[in-house]
Simulated assay, not measured.
Amino acid sequence: MELLFSNEMGVTAALQNRLRQGNHPSLLWVQPTYQYQGQRLTAAEAAEKGLKRKAPPVIRLEQIREITEFLSRPPLEAPRNVVVLEEAQTMAEAAANALLKTLEEPGQATLILIAPTLESVLPTLVSRCQRIPFYRLDAQSLAVVLTQTGHQEILSNQAVLSIASGSAGSAIASYEQLQAIPSELLEDLKKAPASYRKALELAKKIDKDLDTEAQLWLIDYLQQFYWQQWHQPSIINQLEQSRKYLLSYAQPRLVWECLLLSVCSIVKAS
């Protein structure tokens, strides 16, 4: 088994290209999914349908069972079957436990789990895998990659670069997400709400215009942007707490109301 920990999207490009050409009979690529009207949809498929998502996608127990079924057959066009689990940290505990036996006895197969950090995956999974880290690019190398791929405009956005943490793929994905945020809303959020009423209006607009996944990304962006602007640890802590509330399925509008009212108070007091 191989456990790959990387936040670099480019690591998987070759295998993804092979899948786009037609599923390889000895390769199974597993992505986190949403449940919608009896169907499982990846993030890309949900975006194409214009679905407003209330929670991040996860790797589900049913997908782990499909892995077991896939590996019950011998490889057809390769010496071994290969299973790739993208964003392995999104597995719920039940799904992760169901994967344990397969990791222990994979047969003629290699399983690759991709996650952002070692700590984000259950220790029981980590203990059964070989860790292969992918390190961040330095600033110069990142600039070269972004320029060569036609994304040099990202280099002027320090908040996006900070979110990317040396990953060209993450930088590109974050920049694309940034473009999807309504510009007027983003400009209003870049400065502290001028009043409590404005804070409540912004919270209402965020809840109306953005799904939960976009709101979670916005938390990351505001953490970077606000730190560069005000260097207030209390604001960063409030944002981190808001992320936890959103992941716990708290009512998003209420989460943003509390957050923006707090930001307004902290900035006014400083």
Score class of each variant (00 low, 15 high):
residue 100 L to Y: 03
residue 51 L to A: 04
residue 127 S to R: 12
residue 143 A to D: 03
residue 96 A to C: 10
residue 59 I to C: 00
residue 158 Q to F: 08
residue 64 I to P: 00
residue 86 E to C: 02
residue 53 R to S: 04
residue 74 P to F: 14
residue 164 A to N: 12
residue 163 I to N: 10
residue 80 R to C: 04
residue 27 L to H: 04
residue 172 I to G: 03
residue 57 P to T: 02
residue 90 T to L: 09
residue 152 Q to I: 01
residue 96 A to L: 09
residue 62 E to F: 00
residue 134 F to V: 15
residue 122 L to R: 06
residue 138 D to S: 04
residue 120 S to A: 15
residue 53 R to W: 00
residue 43 A to Q: 11
residue 157 N to Y: 13
residue 119 E to L: 09
residue 52 K to N: 10
residue 174 S to V: 09
residue 80 R to V: 12
residue 156 S to L: 12
residue 151 H to P: 06
residue 132 I to S: 14
residue 97 N to E: 07
residue 107 G to V: 08
residue 112 I to Q: 00
residue 75 P to F: 03
residue 51 L to I: 13
residue 123 P to G: 08
residue 113 L to A: 09
residue 53 R to E: 06
residue 49 K to G: 01
residue 128 R to G: 05
residue 134 F to P: 00
residue 129 C to I: 08
residue 64 I to R: 02
residue 103 L to A: 10
residue 129 C to S: 14
residue 41 L to G: 06
residue 124 T to R: 12
residue 105 E to R: 07
residue 172 I to R: 10
residue 72 S to A: 15
residue 144 V to G: 00
residue 54 K to W: 01
residue 48 E to V: 09
residue 171 A to R: 13
residue 106 P to V: 02
residue 102 T to E: 05
residue 91 M to G: 04
residue 75 P to T: 07
residue 90 T to W: 03
residue 32 P to Q: 05
residue 29 W to T: 10
residue 112 I to K: 03
residue 67 I to T: 01
residue 100 L to P: 02
residue 77 E to W: 06
residue 129 C to F: 01
residue 154 I to P: 07
residue 50 G to N: 05
residue 37 Q to K: 14
residue 53 R to M: 14
residue 44 A to E: 15
residue 119 E to M: 09
residue 148 Q to G: 05
residue 140 Q to A: 12
residue 101 K to R: 15
residue 86 E to M: 11
residue 115 A to K: 03
residue 109 A to D: 06
residue 155 L to Q: 10
residue 112 I to W: 12
residue 98 A to V: 00
residue 101 K to G: 12
residue 131 R to V: 11
residue 61 L to A: 01
residue 90 T to E: 12
residue 69 E to M: 00
residue 139 A to F: 02
residue 164 A to T: 07
residue 52 K to I: 10
residue 31 Q to Y: 10
residue 156 S to C: 01
residue 100 L to V: 11
residue 122 L to T: 08
residue 153 E to A: 15
residue 84 V to D: 00
residue 79 P to H: 03
residue 44 A to N: 13
residue 111 L to Y: 02
residue 82 V to G: 01
residue 113 L to Q: 07
residue 154 I to S: 11
residue 81 N to A: 11
residue 141 S to H: 11
residue 167 S to R: 08
residue 27 L to E: 09
residue 27 L to S: 07
residue 98 A to R: 02
residue 128 R to W: 07
residue 36 Y to N: 10
residue 98 A to Q: 01
residue 94 A to T: 09
residue 168 A to P: 07
residue 62 E to A: 12
residue 152 Q to M: 07
residue 121 V to T: 09
residue 166 G to D: 08
residue 116 P to W: 05
residue 149 T to R: 15
residue 109 A to E: 06
residue 56 P to K: 06
residue 52 K to G: 04
residue 139 A to C: 00
residue 111 L to E: 07
residue 126 V to D: 03
residue 98 A to L: 04
residue 100 L to E: 01
residue 50 G to M: 11
residue 116 P to G: 09
residue 74 P to A: 15
residue 145 V to F: 05
residue 147 T to H: 06
residue 59 I to H: 01
residue 154 I to H: 13
